[in-house]
Each structure stands twice: as C-alpha cells, then as structure tokens.
C-alpha cells in the first residue's frame, strides 16, 4: 500500500512537471507582450526596458524557464523585490505575488467544492441505490425523471431562480456570500448554503443516474449471485457486497469532478459572486494577466493530479486486486 502511494505520487510529480513546462512555454506563445501590457498607456522605451528587466523578460527563453524553475524551488529577485520560494511571479495588474492571491482565493473554492460534494455524493448515491433496489417501481421512475430534469438545467438558470425564490421571496436561505470559516463558521455555512445546494442539485442528478446504473450491473454479477446462494439477507447482499462493485465508477467520475471543482467552479462562483479560483481565472483572462493565468493553471493541474492520486488510493481500499 505504501509502495503503491509512493509510486502514484512520483507519477503525479512527473505530470505536474510536464504541465508546468507546457504552461510556461504557452506563456511565450501568447500574442501579447506582457511587458507592454504591464507598462500601460504612457509607455516610454526606457520604462519598457526597465519592466522587461524587472519581469525577467530580457533573458533568453530557456534562461527564463530556468529562472522560473529556480523561482518555484528557491525563490528569485524581480528588480528590487525578492520573491521567496515557491515563487510564481507577480500579477501584471495589481503587482501582488501570484501565489499569495491563489492562496487567498483557494479557501473559497475549497469550501464550495467540499460542501457541495458532501451533499451531492450523499444524496446522489442514496437516490441511485434506492432506485436500483426498487427498479421498475414508481419510486425508481419518478426519481429518475427528476434527475433527468436536474441533469439538464444549468447552474446559472437554477441559481437565479433559486436565489429569487428561496432568498428574496421566501427568505428561507440567507444571502449567498463567502465568509471565511475561521472568521465566522455560522456565516460561512449560511452564505454557502444556496451555492452548495445549487451546485449539488445539478451534480446529484448525475450521480443518482450513475449509481443506479452501476448498482444494477453489480447486482447481476456472479459473486453477488453467490452471496444470495449462501443465504444472506437482501440487506447484506446490497450493502455488504453489491455496493463495492457499484461504487467504483462513482469514485472514478467523482475524482475527475473534484479535480475540476478545485480548479474553480467558474459558473457557480460567478453566479453567486464567490471570490474563488474560478472567478480569479475569469478575471485574469479578461485582463491578460499572464502570471496569474499560469498560476491558476498550475493550481488547477495540481488539484486534478492530487484528486487522481486520492482516487487511486480509494480504489486500492475498495478493491484488493488493485493493490500491488
């Protein structure tokens, strides 16, 4: 198990390195000159040269790549200021260190992703299991019909409607906003309830359908027939044996989902004005803030890769055949 995890982590590091490199060179394929963008309207050749030097753009591309790597592992100097490791550079727009901004925004994204995950995984899996066990009954048919609707509405649409009805009209839920958990746990929960529910509603539908389908497959497996032939009760058959086969596809899909969500739930964050990575990315792209874009890509890739490692670890816990 230990060897397995080490292997996966090494693989993950390699992937991250590749993503990192690609992102870096994409940076130079961009049509805009970052120094010029940073220089502003009243730009003299002298300032431009100065900025180039400050941003480290006067060196050759391989040298810059080297500087970037050194920056990440050992820190580097930009003009007069020192950026300590891991250094991802400075925003062209507000000249803040990219890393600080990312770290500042990440908790909001993490809060949104994890809270919604709890709701949609719990709800989706439960509904899917029930539908599979009561296959063909009205319960199955109605939940699946609802989940079809749930899976086809968009977050913007659902978010706006839900906000109008549940917050503005009925006043059942507080106004959606992000307050750091450490400042105000109650406000954190309250402010995120509507974003969580909206995101979870759309996702739960997907997981309900997925769980139902894979549970039905699992119930048809040979070894499940064997445990029935052993005289186990339906409850034991379903919840001790069949679910293990059924949960694997759910874990796979969730692993991808989690990586995406941690890279910023763009639509949800913009819909509810949550200051997370997703919103940051949108703004960075709008402003051609290249260091920030690079930083967001890196953090999204890291999230993706780590989620993958986590999924592999979960596989190994569920299925002994995966352990090496």
């Amino acid at each position: 198990m230990f060897r397995f995890l080490v292997q996966r982590l090494l693989g993950a590091a390699l992937i991250l390195f590749v993503v990192f490199t690609v992102t870096f060179f994409l940076f130079f394929a961009m049509p805009d000159d970052p120094a010029r963008l940073s220089c502003g309207k009243t730009c003299t050749p002298e300032t431009l040269a100065l900025i180039r030097r400050d941003l480290g753009l006067d060196a050759s591309v391989p040298m810059q790549y080297w500087h970037y790597i050194v920056g990440v592992f050992a820190g580097r100097d930009f003009g007069s200021s020192h950026c300590s490791a891991p250094c991802l550079g400075y925003s062209f727009v507000n000249h803040e260190p990219v890393l600080d901004t990312l770290l500042d925004r990440f908790p909001a994204t993490l809060s949104l992703a994890l809270g919604a995950s709890v709701i949609f995984l719990g709800g989706g899996i439960m509904i899917g299991m029930l539908a599979a066990l009561r296959r063909g009954t009205w319960l199955d048919k109605s939940t699946m019909a609802f989940s079809l609707i749930g899976a086809s509405v968009t977050i913007q649409f659902l978010g706006v409607i839900a906000r109008y009805v549940l917050v503005d009209e009925l006043r059942w839920l507080p106004k959606p906003e992000y307050l750091p958990f450490t400042d105000d746990p109650g406000g954190w929960t309250g402010g995120l309830l509507l974003p969580w529910l909206t995101l979870a509603c759309v996702q739960a539908a997907v997981y309900a359908r997925l769980t139902r389908a894979s549970m039905i497959d699992a119930l048809g497996e040979d070894h499940v027939r064997t445990v029935r032939a052993k005289g186990l009760t339906s409850r034991q058959v379903y919840f001790k044996h069949a679910w293990r086969g059924a949960i694997t596809p759910v874990v796979t899909v969730y692993g991808i989902e989690l990586g995406v969500l941690l890279g910023g739930a763009v639509v949800t964050e913009t819909t509810f004005n949550i200051p997370g990575i997703g919103k940051l990315a949108v703004n960075a792209v709008a402003n051609s803030d290249l260091p920030m874009i690079t930083g967001v890509v890196l953090i999204a890739a890291t999230a993706m890769v780590l989620a993958n490692v986590a999924v592999d670890a979960v596989y190994a816990v569920i299925d002994p055949r995966v352990r090496v």
Partner: peptide
C-alpha cells in the same frame, strides 16, 4: 440456501467476491 442446499458455480474467479 447455503445450509441445506448449496451451490458451486462454473467460474470460481467471478463467483467468489474479489473484495
């Protein structure tokens, strides 16, 4: 089942639980 009448299936690899 399993007590008075029990069953052995064709393919033991799939008939036994892998978990």
């Amino acid at each position: 089942r399993g007590q008075r009448v029990s069953m052995v299936f064709q393919d033991p690899l799939t008939a036994l639980s892998p978990y």
